[in-house]
Write a protein that binds this DNA or RNA. Structure first.
Lengths: 193, 193
DNA sequence: CTGAACCGTTGATTTTTATCAACAGAATTT
DNA sequence: AAATTCTGTTGATAAAAATCAACGGTTCAG
């Protein structure tokens, strides 16, 4: 259960964890299971938890006034979920996060997470996590403003091919900022040639 | 010169800086001036510096195969500039960063920045900086995939009205992921009612 | 087991936005 | 001061993508 998290931390920090470190991490992170469609976070709440995905897949999205969902993030094993803004500032979130597949998570709260400050590898790994998240978001901004729908899809095939197997097409379409019909046509055209 | 940075750190960390802290920060951050249009970073280079803007305005953008520029970030006083990916991974950057107004910056390198690890307030402030950056990017992703051109402009007027005074309209348009003609028409319509 | 919801596709149409082109006022350079 | 570049507008047209609608094939829950 915790091995994936230990590996993640050691890998990103480039530092090994001591037995004591592991002990503390097991106390700080609490396992949680989510059934498919179950909410991890709902619009209007304050985001109490930050979670590491041990197994499963989640989606983070907004709902507009017409009821349409817009995927801000799709996440699978070894990714982190939470609304950093709500989590750190304690403000109500505008996002929903729910499970697309049954999930095993390791969750922590803002208060518990402070205990990690004594573990250099964990501090380092969390910093890397934030930086990676910022980089990933930056890339999405860059492609959203600079690329056509077709180019955005091609980039996803390149960079996150697993998403295509784990999430239905209409979610992928929303994640890419287009309708399911447009994505369907783009795929048709791409496979046709 | 350094006061703005001290204030920034103290404010974000919620902790005061000691005299020794200030001393170290002055050694870690080196002043740099940029003239309008001068590059801070060019596509293909490795991003050696991370900088705090004391005065001035910069833009970060990609250039597509047709030579069109796409603004990924616009930044003014109290903002940070750098390509986090290139800076941390030492990979060549795909972005350009240059000065739109004459700038006074405080710059640091990856190596020098490690000295900040001994200053809790600085560590905290840098972490906040990353989180804020990630949050800002997340919001842009969210609006890019979920909103119309008109809504994106309205949101900018709401959240960053100063940009409208500091940057020309065609840069704002690019930042919002639309052409200058479209932005011009949106503004016309908005002022007309 | 079966009716309902979900999923992806296709076609016709409309809306949004980009593109192309031309223009005039400002600012900058020489 | 003249010339050139930069800026924002406007109009006409084209392209991209959204919307609306309808359809079979799945999957799922009662």
């Amino acid at each position: 259960m915790y091995d994936k998290l230990f590996n993640y931390i050691e890998q990103y920090a480039g530092l090994p964890l001591t037995e004591t470190d592991r002990q503390i991490i097991q106390e700080v992170f609490v396992p949680m299971k989510l059934r498919k469609k179950q909410y991890f976070l709902q619009e209007g709440e304050v985001c109490k938890y930050m979670a590491f995905i041990v197994k499963g897949a989640t989606r983070q999205y907004t709902v507009d006034d017409k009821g349409a969902e817009h995927m801000v993030q799709l996440a699978i094993e070894n990714w982190w979920i939470s609304d950093r803004e709500s989590f750190t500032m304690l403000t109500p979130t505008i996002y929903n996060i729910d499970a697309w597949e049954d999930c095993e998570l390791l969750t922590t709260t803002k208060a518990d997470a402070t205990r990690l400050a004594h573990i250099p590898a964990a501090v380092q790994a969390l910093r890397e996590m934030d930086i990676n998240h910022a980089i990933a978001m930056q890339k999405r901004v860059s492609s959203a403003i600079a690329m056509t729908a077709e180019q955005r899809y091609a980039q996803l095939v390149e960079s996150n091919p697993t998403f295509l197997q784990r999430f239905p097409q209409h979610m992928i379409a929303s994640y890419l900022g287009m309708t399911k019909e447009t994505l369907s046509r783009i795929r048709m055209k791409a496979s046709g040639k």
